[in-house]
């Protein structure tokens, strides 16, 4: 079972390597990448620092969505629920209890994780489209609740104490750590027996159950991990936004951004969400900021092109193309290799 699941894993570079060693290799690469980003932050100016901070938060957000949607096959339309609760928990502990940003961020993560666990109870009974719609309903209800709840200052919103917000360099490092944490979690989930069982559940949950896998237990764990990671990203967003209102923090747009990034980069892969976050946030959102309508056209159009022609996403496509050009031995081999499905 392990080998079949692995060979189906998109973006797998060398299926011959044992599971754990590949995971360790990936973590090693992650550490190197993290060091490189740190160095980039050192040499880059304020522009790199602020761009990087937001980008890292989006990488974490996309990766968290990917862990739930890509690895476990549960499409969530409720990213805003966790971004919102985490940001609020952080702002409230900081303003009302006088906590600093670190415990505040941890509080946000814990509250977002707790919300996931709470929502998992009813939501995990729903399948496919209904799960997606359920997460959407929960988010909308939470948003409307916060809009009317005087404890959180209703629709007027709350803010993080501005003097408690770390400086730009610190924010960059915080963002980086959060992103590394999210990608690291994805790596651990991917290349472990846990991940293999998760794939089995995604592909055929009935079969996995018959083989003795605790399907709902696995799904619960994934949902909580994803919620906590979104909570961390939400903490970074809260720190950079400073003031926010329910309609912004529980917005549909968080889901949309995470989903667009993952689908464009490559759902169910570890690298894909990173590629997607860079392509969308850097390539479209910031580059086309002067042309908002055009950037919408780009985003929508790119989504359509990707799902229509490159359904696996950009990263698996790049890997496939690279491998094909490396292994090109003549027309016979090429046509034989052109057909296998990406994943």
């Amino acid at each position: 079972m392990a080998t079949t699941a692995l060979s189906r894993a998109p973006g797998s570079v060398a299926p011959a390597l044992p599971l754990r060693r590949r995971g360790i290799a990936a973590l090693g690469a992650l550490v190197l990448a993290g060091a490189a980003c740190l160095a980039l932050g050192e040499v880059g100016g304020a522009g790199v620092l602020s761009l990087g901070t937001t980008l890292f938060a989006y990488v974490a957000l996309a990766q968290a969505w990917n862990i739930l949607g890509g690895f476990s096959g549960q499409m969530s339309l409720g990213v805003g629920a966790f971004v919102g609760t985490s940001a609020y928990a952080m702002a409230l502990t900081m303003t009302r209890l006088g906590w600093s940003w670190l415990p505040g961020m941890v509080a946000g993560m814990v509250v977002a994780g707790a919300l996931s666990a709470l929502l998992a109870l009813p939501l995990l009974r729903l399948k496919g489209d209904y799960f997606a719609v359920g997460t959407l309903a929960a988010t909308l209800a939470l948003d409307a609740w916060f809009d009317n709840w005087s404890f959180v200052n209703k629709s007027m919103g709350v803010s993080v104490p501005i003097q408690a917000v770390p400086g730009q360099t610190e924010m960059y490092v915080i963002g980086l750590v959060v992103a590394l944490f999210a990608v690291g979690s994805a790596i651990v989930m991917r290349w472990s027996t846990f991940g293999v069982r998760l794939l089995a559940i995604r592909e055929d949950d009935l079969a996995a159950r018959l083989l003795g896998v605790n399907v709902s237990g696995y799904r619960l764990v994934v949902m909580v991990v994803s919620g906590m990671l979104i909570g961390l990203a939400g903490g970074v967003f809260a720190l950079s936004l400073v003031s926010f209102v329910p309609d912004g923090m529980f917005a549909m747009s968080w889901t949309i951004e995470a989903l667009v990034m993952v689908v464009i980069g490559g759902m169910g892969t570890v690298i894909g969400p990173i590629v997607g976050a860079v392509a969308v946030y850097y390539g479209i959102t910031t580059e086309l900021a002067n042309f908002p309508t055009l950037s919408l056209f780009f985003e929508g159009g790119l989504l359509l092109v990707i799902v229509r022609f490159v359904p696996g996403g950009l990263w698996p496509f790049v890997v496939r193309s690279a491998r094909r050009s490396l292994e090109w031995r003549g027309p016979a081999i090429r046509s034989a290799r052109a057909t296998p499905p990406p994943s």
């Binding site: 989903l259 689908v263 929508g300 790119l302 359509l304």
Partner: peptide, 14 residues
């Protein structure tokens, strides 16, 4: 189903 959700979402953005 993901492709359906993503594709129609792309249409909505367009």
């Amino acid at each position: 189903p993901e492709a359906g959700i993503v594709g129609t979402f792309g249409l909505a953005v367009l």
